[in-house]
């Protein structure tokens, strides 16, 4: 199932949390070779994880991390504004209706629903909070994966070459994108909406939604 968790709620899901930060180390440090910090426990974290961001996390049947991404509103500190404004035409992107999406990560063990589920999560947040845009920092080598998810970023700027290359992109999701994404995740819109609602309220999901999700 999808969970929408603020950093300070992660303590309620220790396995999910630990596997997420380890999978991030695997993806960003080992696989993509980004200059990120990995601690002794093999977890990748940065200063934005300390700002109580909102994570969208695909939890697999065994309770482990299948994929995740991290959101912060652009009215506060963001990676794009702090480090990449030379890639946005010098514009400090700032609005409560534009969120930054970073650290898009898939577990090496991700099930086939993981990437579609993350696209769905991004769409649900945009729909629930009437957001206009996402802006994000991404590795151009991931573009193919985004495209497969139906979440192709519109690249507004790139920097560096080869392994060092990094991009800033824009995403948005319209209502038409929901139907195919829901189908790939295997849930209906009510279940998807309740994942968001129950996660943020910190309440357990009612049985109905869960059983549908797992059998779909």
């Amino acid at each position: 199932m999808l969970r929408y968790l603020y950093a300070n709620d992660l303590c309620r899901f220790p396995l999910l949390r630990d596997t997420m930060f380890r999978d991030r180390a695997e993806q960003f440090s080992k696989r993509l070779g980004w200059a990120v910090t990995v601690n002794d426990a093999g977890e990748e974290r940065d200063e934005y994880d300390a700002m109580n961001p909102l994570y969208v996390i695909w939890e697999m049947a065994d309770g482990r991390h299948g994929g995740s991404m991290r959101f912060l509103p652009t009215v506060g500190q963001t990676m794009v504004n702090d480090h990449f404004s030379h890639l946005t035409g010098g514009v400090t992107i700032e609005s409560p209706l534009i969120w930054e999406c970073t650290r898009f990560c898939l577990s090496p063990n991700a099930d086939r629903r993981a990437s579609a589920a993350l696209a769905l999560g991004a769409g649900e947040l945009m729909s629930a909070f009437k957001l206009k845009h996402y802006v994000g920092v991404f590795d151009p080598r991931m573009e193919r994966i985004y495209r497969l998810m139906g979440l192709e970023p519109e690249v507004i700027g790139t920097d560096g070459e080869g392994r060092e290359k990094i991009g800033v992109g824009l995403w948005s999701m319209n209502d038409d994108a929901f139907a195919p994404t829901l189908k790939r995740v295997g849930v209906n819109r009510d279940v998807s909406r309740s994942w968001l609602r129950y996660s943020l309220a910190g309440k357990p999901m009612p049985d109905l939604g869960d059983s549908f999700a797992e059998t779909a």
Binding site: G89, V91, I93, S95, K132, H133, L170
Partner: peptide, 17 residues
């Protein structure tokens, strides 16, 4: 010489400011 999407982001940012 930017995309319409980029323009919309600039406009939204300017609206907020």
């Amino acid at each position: 010489t930017i995309s319409e999407h980029t323009l919309r982001v600039y406009i939204e940012s300017a609206r907020h400011k």
